[in-house]
Amino acid sequence: MAAYIARRLLQAVLILIGVSFVTFVLLYLVPADPARQIAGRSATAETVANIRAQLGLDQPFYVQYGRYFMNMIQGDLGRSYLQKTEVAALIAARLPATLQLMAGALFFELLLGLTTGILAALKRGTAIDNALMVGSFIGVSAPQFVVGILLLYVFAVQLGWFPIGGYGTLAHLVLPAITLGILGAGWYSRMMRSSMLDVLRQDYIRTARAKGLDRARVVVRHALPNAILPVIAMIGIDIGLFMSGIVVVESVFGWPGIGQLAWQAIQRVDIPIIMGVTLVSAVAIVLGNLLADLIAPFIDPRIKLR
């Protein structure tokens, strides 16, 4: 187990180095000029050149990346071009809000997705099944900014049940979490349904019924743990989907997390922040997958970590 985690973390470091390199290359190729952004539109060419030299942007690519890399492995993600603050400090300040949002969304999508998926599987072929699958299809296909605005309009503006925006209480969390989680809920619902149907066909379910167990016990004890395994693997991947979702959702709801930070940085070509947020996202995805892999053996004893 310890050896397994150690090896996975080692792999994670290599992945992060790869991610940093690819992101750096992409940002280098973007035609926007950070120096011009900082100096403003009215600045002279000389000022722009000065800023460029100051930031080292006039150096060849490999020098720039080499410097970033050396700092990165020492834990220094650089400073924002515009705010002059440490990127690490900026991210650290906003990370709790984002984690809260993600936890809320994960809770919502698992709650909704798993229950509807199980229900649909047990009621296979009925009107309930069809209705739930149409619902999940809408959940999967609805764009997040539309869902967000719709929820805001109905539940915050018209009904006034929830605050329109901001951050702090549980009431603030509800609408953003639903918006972020609705996509995943649709996915989980469909996945859980097909996984459950698959498991219900298995020989050991027939054995459980042949023993004279009641239906609830057959479903909860025998089918559920087996059916949920592929879903757990999915949670790891889900963290990655969240990362793209939070940029939209945080902007719609004015949620002060790293999604907003990233959005502002992208508009202003604030390369150190973009790099920092990308790396944090990569860490989240890697850890999410590791966590999913670590949970699986507790449910299925056949899975051996090695």
């Binding site: 298995q202 020989d203 054995t207 023993k211 004279g212 004893p301």
Partner: peptide
């Protein structure tokens, strides 16, 4: 029927590999 299954009349199947629940 459930009260009878397993108590009065039981059954075993062809595939012992798949007839037992792997996670219990």
């Amino acid at each position: 029927m459930r009260a009878l299954r397993g108590a009065e009349i039981s059954m075993i199947f062809q595939e012992p590999m798949t007839s037992l629940n792997p996670v219990l």
